[in-house]
Amino acid sequence: MTCDHFVTYFAAMDEVFDALAHPDRRALLDSLFERDGQTLTELQSRFPVTRFAVMKHLKILEAAHLVTSRKIGREKRHYLNPVPIRQVGDRWISRYAAPFVTAMVGLKQQVEGTVMIGPKHVYEIYVRASAEAVWAILTDDEKTPLYQHFNMTSRTDWRVGGAIEFMMGDRTVIAGEILELAPPSRLVLTFHARWSPEVAADAPSRVTWDIRQLPGNACKLVLTHDDFGGDTATSRQVNAGWPETLSRLKTLVETGQPFELEPDYSPAEG
């Protein structure tokens, strides 16, 4: 990593810490974690502060990429983006320690009764490459193991209505169908997890890849995983994989080199 990359990385980390420093902004993130996709009016109604104050806090959170927003009809909805927080955690928590840290946090939440449910996941990341470059790798089955969680391979019929499978060896762990295919900006597919009997019992959910070209050689990538039908085993388990997938995809597109990671466990171990 060059000196310029270090400067950019630490500046981004400073923005995350600054955004998290204010208790009202942490409360806004908690509210979005509990129920993602809220409007400004909905968020403001939950806090004893002015609408302007909530707008200001949301602007800071968006600048730190902790919150992303999307216009749906006349409404602007806000979503929690956990990628920067995961990146901060990854800096000091080794992959070998991560499962134990997760287990300890989960136990603490169960004992204290503070577990929150957010059955809609939205991730946002910026890539220093064109939308076409991201799309080319995203839709190339040969490149899938270079960025996917667990180094999964894929087999896809690239048309609307076509089948898509993600595999570990000869075993299909995720199966789906392409719902939308609009190169180089939008890919929507169903997502039926099959790595364990628990998730296989869930109905298929939905994954949406949105890629927006920005001025210069850069684009904004937003991944939305939703339509779980409630708090399901799938909605609880996919959070661990997407931040890694997006980080590896970004590295691959920007450098042409895969970011090699050894998985901590297999999906069958859940």
Rank of each mutant, 00 (worst) to 15 (best):
V16F: 03
R74M: 10
L246W: 14
H65R: 11
T190L: 13
R186S: 10
F259H: 05
F33T: 01
K250Y: 08
A27T: 10
L261M: 10
E34K: 10
K120N: 14
F6L: 11
I117S: 06
L249Y: 05
T255L: 12
S94D: 08
G241V: 09
T2G: 13
M104W: 09
Y147V: 12
A233G: 14
I117H: 05
A218R: 15
M116V: 08
L58C: 00
H5R: 13
D210P: 02
A240T: 04
V122Y: 06
M168G: 02
T251P: 02
P267H: 09
V54G: 03
V101T: 09
F228Y: 13
I93M: 08
D264H: 01
F17I: 10
A129T: 10
W195L: 00
V7N: 07
A64W: 03
V83F: 06
Q109F: 03
Q257H: 05
V16E: 03
G113F: 05
F6H: 09
F100R: 13
N239Y: 06
A193H: 01
I93C: 11
H57M: 11
Y123A: 02
D226I: 00
Y147A: 11
A27Y: 04
A19N: 13
D90R: 07
A200I: 04
P258K: 10
A268I: 04
V101P: 04
P267I: 07
L29D: 10
S31Q: 14
I164P: 06
A218E: 14
S196I: 01
D227I: 03
V7M: 09
R248N: 13
G118E: 08
T102V: 08
F100E: 12
P145W: 13
K143L: 09
R171E: 14
F259C: 02
L181K: 05
T224G: 03
L20I: 08
Q237P: 00
L28S: 07
A268W: 06
G89S: 02
E62S: 14
R95K: 12
P263I: 09
